[in-house]
Amino acid sequence: MIRAILSFAGLALLMLGASVPAAAVTPDEMLKDPALEARARDVSRLLRCVVCQNQSIDDSNAPLAQDLRILVRERLTAGDTNDQTINFIVARYGNFVLLKPPMQLNTVLLWFGPALLFALASFGLHRTLKAQAQPTDKVAAAPLSADEEKRLAKLLGDAPVKN
């Protein structure tokens, strides 16, 4: 279903004027220089095909993706670095084309989110393990239970026991 729903998008695509697929990277697009061609593939994999569902221009059959692949190869052949080539496309289509979102103010949470989750979960795990390691039967054998401590503290007018 998942991808089924996705492919319904194909219909709408026809409405807005994308034509039938040709093919991802064709032999006549490819550069003679294997090193340059490899760089072109690397760059293409990082750029999103703007008319597709979450595909890179390297994978996409859409005509616009093909145009962008050719453009990428032209820029690289003209001597641009990978970053310059990517920036050239970003200047025209925005950050939306970057499959790897840039590190900037509004993506801080995205990039540090997993680490934050890790910290939170480690804290939770630490507490859980510590709590679970308290043998309840030993508590019963202990001189005073935590509750009794609290009640005692209250009775004696002390500050509440830190929890």
């Binding site: 695509l13 703007v50 005509p63 616009l64 145009d67 453009l71 025209r92």
Partner: peptide
């Protein structure tokens, strides 16, 4: 479609 790309045309 090169001018289209310069203008950020997607379709």
């Amino acid at each position: 479609g090169r001018l289209g790309i310069d203008m950020g045309v997607t379709g």
